[in-house]
Amino acid sequence: MRINVYSQELTDEVLLIEKESNTGLVYSAVQIILHSSDKLHHPPQDDDRSAVTFWLPKSEHRREALALAFENMAKLVRNARSETGLD
């Protein structure tokens, strides 16, 4: 699967999400909120904004691997050629 998010859709809003399953387990995720139309939004309890959600693994080892991947992505962003992309 490939997910494309264009630079015009990016915001600086990042959330920690926690959801409890019907088995009582709590799952955590980090979510990057994307720009979306104000026409989509209703009451605050019905947050239907566009987002990319990364559900976190259970083990500390895999969580650290994911954190390192995000840190590596940040380094690549900072070092990419400045003339690429759109605003």
Rank of each mutant, 00 (worst) to 15 (best):
H61N: 14
N72H: 08
H41P: 06
D48H: 12
P44H: 03
F54T: 07
E71F: 07
D12F: 00
K19T: 15
S7F: 06
G24M: 02
A74S: 05
S28V: 05
R2T: 11
S82E: 07
L16K: 10
Y27E: 15
V77Y: 01
D48C: 13
M73K: 03
F54R: 05
T53F: 02
D48Y: 08
V26E: 07
A67S: 14
Q31D: 07
R2F: 06
Q31G: 03
E60C: 01
L15T: 08
Q31H: 04
N22S: 13
E18R: 14
D47M: 03
L15G: 04
L86T: 13
H42Q: 15
E64I: 08
R81V: 04
L76C: 11
L10A: 01
G24A: 01
A69M: 08
P43V: 13
M73F: 13
A29S: 12
L68W: 02
L25W: 13
I3L: 11
V5P: 05
S21R: 14
Q45F: 15
S21P: 04
R2Y: 09
H42F: 10
F70M: 05
D47I: 02
L68T: 15
F70I: 06
F70L: 11
L76P: 02
W55G: 08
L16W: 06
K58T: 12
S50D: 08
H41Q: 14
G85N: 03
F54K: 05
A80H: 02
Q45T: 13
H35A: 09
I32V: 12
N79S: 10
M1T: 10
L34A: 00
F54L: 11
R49Y: 08
S59I: 01
I32P: 01
V26F: 07
M1E: 07
L76A: 14
E18V: 06
A69E: 10
D12L: 03
L56K: 01
D48G: 10
I17W: 10
E9I: 05
S82M: 07
I32N: 05
S36G: 09
K39G: 10
R2L: 10
I33V: 15
Q8Y: 11
R49N: 03
K19S: 11
L25D: 15
K58E: 13
D48A: 10
E64S: 11
F54A: 13
L66I: 03
V14P: 01
F70K: 00
P44K: 05
T53K: 07
V14I: 07
V77N: 04
A51Y: 11
A65S: 11
P44S: 01
H61P: 06
N4G: 07
P57A: 00
I33R: 12
H42R: 14
D12W: 00
N4W: 09
L16S: 09
L40Y: 10
R81D: 08
A80M: 00
E13L: 06
Y6Q: 12
F70A: 03
P57S: 03
P57D: 04
R49I: 03
L25P: 08
A29P: 03
G85S: 01
E18K: 11
W55Y: 11
I17P: 04
V26L: 08
V26K: 15
I32Q: 07
S37I: 02
M1S: 09
S37K: 04
L76H: 10
V26P: 09
H41F: 11
E71T: 04
K58A: 09
S7C: 09
Y6H: 08
D38A: 13
S21Q: 14
